[in-house]
Amino acid sequence: MRGYVAMTAQEVAEFMASGLFDVSDVYAPTSQFIVDHQDLDDEEIEYTLSMVAAEDALEMKTATSGAACVLAFEVPAESISESHDMSISLSSPLKWESLECLFEVSSDGEELTWYATQEIDANLASWLK
C-alpha cells in the first residue's frame, strides 16, 4: 500500500543517514477512504492524500528545518497494524529502501515537485537552506 509522510528536509537528511524513520501513522488510501471518496479515481486519491501530507509538512517547517517535503512509500502489508479513515498505523519503522519518491512542497502549499529517490542526495543541500 502506498503511504505518504510529511517531513522537513532536516528529517529527510536524518532518515537518509539512518535508513529508518519511526512514525506511528501515515496517510494511505485505506478501504474507508476509498469508500468515502468513490467519486475519485486512483490518481485523484493519491493526489489528495499527498496534499494532506503537504499541509502537515508546511506546518512542521521552521526557519532552520529546511523545505517541507512529502515522502511516498510502498508500505509492506506486514508493517500495517491498523487501518483508519485516511491513514494506517505501522508496527515497524519505515525503511529508506521502501521509499518510492519525494515531493518538495511549494512555500504556498499549492504545488508538489516530484523527485526520484536517486535525485534526493543531489538536491538535499538546497532543500536544507
Rank of each mutant, 00 (worst) to 15 (best):
F21W: 13
D41K: 11
S50L: 09
A17I: 00
Q38E: 12
E14T: 10
L124D: 04
E43K: 12
I80H: 02
F21G: 14
M51L: 14
Y4R: 02
A77G: 06
Y47I: 00
Y4M: 09
M86F: 06
E111V: 11
E104D: 00
A54N: 06
L71F: 02
E46M: 07
S18D: 06
T62H: 14
Q32D: 05
L102H: 00
Q32S: 13
F33Y: 15
M86T: 09
D36W: 03
E44P: 00
E110F: 13
V35Q: 03
P93N: 00
A53N: 01
Q38K: 06
F103D: 01
G66E: 08
Q118K: 00
M7E: 08
V5E: 10
N123C: 06
M16S: 12
G66D: 14
E104N: 01
A17H: 02
S106R: 15
S24H: 14
K61P: 03
E55C: 10
L99C: 05
S50F: 06
D41T: 12
A6V: 09
T62G: 14
E14H: 09
E78V: 13
E74Q: 08
D56S: 15
A67T: 03
D25A: 02
Q32W: 02
A54E: 04
M60L: 07
D56H: 07
R2Q: 15
D56K: 05
M7W: 03
A122N: 00
L94W: 12
S83N: 08
Q10T: 09
Y27L: 12
M7Q: 02
V52Q: 10
A68Y: 12
T30I: 05
P76C: 00
D41P: 15
A125N: 14
E78G: 07
Y115T: 14
A9V: 04
E14S: 13
E74R: 15
E100G: 00
A77M: 14
S107P: 06
L40M: 15
P29D: 13
S89Y: 00
I80T: 09
D22P: 08
A13Y: 05
L71D: 01
E74N: 04
W96M: 02
T117C: 11
A125W: 11
E43F: 13
M60R: 08
M51S: 09
L20R: 11
S107A: 03
E111A: 03
L94D: 03
K95Y: 04
L49Y: 11
S24T: 08
M7T: 07
I34P: 02
Q38N: 04
S31T: 13
L90K: 05
A68Q: 07
S81L: 06
A77L: 15
V70A: 03
P29V: 05
T117I: 06
S91A: 15
V26P: 07
A68S: 06
D22T: 07
K95S: 08
P76S: 02
I45C: 14
A28K: 11
L71H: 04
E82I: 04
E111I: 12
T30A: 15
G19R: 05
H84C: 02
K129T: 09
G109M: 05
Q32R: 05
Y115R: 00
I120C: 12
F33I: 04
H84S: 04
Q38V: 05
S106T: 09
D22Q: 10
A63K: 14
G3R: 12
L94A: 03
S98A: 03
A68M: 11
D121N: 07
V26D: 11
E100R: 02
